[in-house]
Simulated assay, not measured.
Amino acid sequence: MAARVGHVVTSGTFSLDGGTWEVDNNVWIVGDDAEAIVIDAAHDADAIEAALGGRRPAAIVCTHGHDDHIDAAPELAARTGAPVLLHPDDLMLWKQRHPGSEPDGALADGQVLAVAGVELTVLHTPGHSPGAVCLHAPALGTVFSGDTLFSGGPGATGRSFSDFPTIIASIRERLLTLPAGTVVRTGHGESTTVGAEAPHLEEWIARGH
């Protein structure tokens, strides 16, 4: 069975800098009938485990360390035995949510994760957070962008550890250089394509989020 992209939306809260907000998160599952990779174990380990449907998760990949993207990761890992992977530049965010623990492994730019015959290449895309990453799967024509790029613009940069010029550079150099038809599967909200977002880069810069 060929690899495919699955999806479940989970709901919870995002907390940082003393504020808390209600959020819906996209949890992406890439794999076949036997194994899968979970991208962003958000909020609800029960829902994610149900979406896996008995498949063996090869890894739980965190696109960044904000608590709404990692809050269910330790529980899901304990249930399934899958390692949790996070870029080390976001370790301080992990420790805010899960003090006294660390992820099982580190993500690095250019690292290739393989599942069900498909390769996902890690793209370090700082800006929303220092250790934010995207996962590019050319064979599936898609990139999993976390909170780096959304339908309509870049991720937020108004809170601690974020930087607007840095996220713009990441999008320009790492994402908008991908084929125009590449589907951008985001951390929140609707998917988009590289081709749909690329023409608006200068508008985003002018707005200076």
Rank of each mutant, 00 (worst) to 15 (best):
A42P: 07
H128F: 10
H188N: 11
S145F: 10
H209D: 14
P103V: 05
R4E: 06
W21A: 12
T193N: 00
G181K: 04
L86A: 09
A82I: 04
A132Q: 14
V115M: 04
I60R: 01
E75V: 14
G6A: 11
E202P: 04
A3I: 03
D147S: 10
A73M: 09
A2Q: 08
A132E: 15
I70P: 08
G81D: 03
H200C: 10
V30R: 01
I168G: 11
D89T: 14
T186L: 08
A50W: 00
G31V: 03
F164M: 07
R207E: 15
P57V: 06
S15Y: 01
G181F: 03
H98S: 11
L149T: 12
S151W: 10
H128K: 04
T177Q: 14
R97C: 14
L91T: 08
P88Y: 12
A72G: 09
G53K: 02
W94F: 07
L135R: 05
A34K: 01
I70H: 08
A77S: 15
H87R: 13
F161R: 14
V194N: 00
G158Q: 13
H87W: 13
A108N: 08
G127K: 09
V23N: 06
A106C: 08
V184W: 02
A59I: 00
P165H: 14
P154W: 07
L140A: 10
T182N: 02
G195D: 02
D40G: 05
D68G: 12
G100A: 12
T186W: 08
H7Q: 00
A206I: 05
A34M: 01
V27P: 05
V23S: 03
H98K: 10
D40N: 15
G127L: 10
D44K: 04
L123S: 05
V23K: 08
S129Q: 11
A41L: 01
F144E: 11
L140V: 05
F150C: 13
G155K: 03
A72F: 04
A180H: 11
T177H: 09
A41G: 07
T80K: 05
P138T: 11
G117H: 01
T157W: 02
G81Q: 01
W204A: 06
E202C: 06
G6T: 06
I205Y: 07
P138W: 12
E197Q: 15
V184M: 06
H43P: 08
R174Y: 07
L76R: 08
G54A: 01
V84P: 02
T80G: 09
V30A: 02
T20A: 03
G65A: 09
A198F: 06
H43L: 09
A58K: 13
L135Y: 11
S191F: 12
I39D: 02
L176W: 13
G153N: 13
H128N: 15
H87C: 14
T63L: 12
G127P: 09
A45K: 03
T193F: 01
D89G: 14
A196Y: 00
A47S: 08
H136G: 06
A47V: 05
M92H: 15
L93D: 08
A169S: 15
R174G: 06
A41P: 07
A78C: 09
E202R: 06
M92D: 14
